[in-house]
């Protein structure tokens, strides 16, 4: 199927994009388009106008400071993945990026676009929560920061207002303890279940985020507590966490299978994070 009619504007600045976004026409931001264009190609509705931000220079920046990674809204997953600093200092992000589609998709798809699209099966919303990321959004009225955990407003929906757009995401330094795994039927498919985790024993931070199996990403708080408590009760905590989950059953997996997979992933990923955290502690 071909896309329905819409107009296309290539914005040259954030200001231009914001002005267009706030006029009376129904507009959507086009970043990489790897989620949006498939939807348009199924004619599942569509905006009157797409505002392409791919050419806005300032949105294409990757900035690494002492303790923050800032990715502009037009930074592709591929560029992030090929950035030596990202790979070295934010290995959780890099590991997750490897699982997004295939190279051809990552070459266009953007990190921020995935956050703004908020597909419940996608990796990056979960990773952003695990990393404690903040999304910087702007409108003509100004800018604000939204914690990744506050961004989601349910599947395919965010707390952004109609005239707001994501301009960047900021990731604080990643602790040495981390883990990421997902399970998909084929490489590159959306995960049937996935877990992203960071663990910093010194500052008592553990964030374990589940995705893919049941609506939007969710923290596995009892697994986090178990990790901080030394990790002996992880299996039990994982089982209890998954017991409380209400997973999706669809043509790709039964709800019960998603439970099984999520339990395994929680245990495995928590284990990975513990190993890395303790290796760091022994340095």
């Amino acid at each position: 199927m071909k896309p329905p009619p819409f107009d296309y504007v290539a914005a040259t600045s954030v200001e231009e994009a914001l002005a267009l976004l706030s006029d009376e026409r129904d507009s959507r931001i086009l970043a990489g388009g790897q989620s949006l264009i498939p939807i348009l190609n199924l004619r599942l509705g569509g905006p009157e106008r797409l505002i392409d931000i791919g050419r806005v220079k300032e949105l294409n920046d990757i900035e690494v400071t002492e303790n923050v990674l800032r990715l502009g809204a037009a930074v592709t997953q591929r560029r992030a993945l090929r950035d030596a600093d990202v790979v070295e200092r934010w290995p959780l992000l890099a590991a997750a990026l490897e699982h997004i589609g295939h190279a051809e998709i990552r070459n266009r798809g953007t990190v921020c676009g995935s956050l703004a699209h908020n597909d419940p099966q996608a990796e990056l919303p979960a990773v952003a929560i695990a990393l404690g990321a903040e999304v910087v959004v702007r409108s003509e009225g100004g800018s604000r920061r939204i914690a990744a955990e506050e961004l989601s407003n349910g599947p395919f929906s965010t707390s952004l207002a109609d005239d707001e757009m994501v301009v960047s995401v900021e990731l604080p330094d990643q602790p040495a303890g981390w883990g990421f795994q997902e399970f998909a039927v084929r490489p590159g498919d959306f995960a049937l279940a996935g877990v992203a985790c960071v663990l910093d024993l010194a500052s008592s931070v553990a964030r374990v985020v589940m995705f893919g199996a049941s609506g939007c990403p969710k923290r596995a708080t009892s697994v986090e507590s178990a990790l901080l408590a030394g990790g002996v009760e992880i299996e039990h905590a994982a089982e209890a966490t998954v017991e409380a989950l209400d997973p999706t059953g669809d043509i790709h997996a039964s709800a019960a299978s998603r439970r099984t997979l999520m339990t395994k992933l929680l245990i495995d990923v928590a284990g990975e994070a513990q190993l890395r955290a303790s290796a760091e502690a022994q340095k």
Partner: peptide, 11 residues
Amino acid sequence: LSPSRVLDLLR
């Protein structure tokens, strides 16, 4: 015999 189907059988 998808992964889920095999898990269903085992369960």
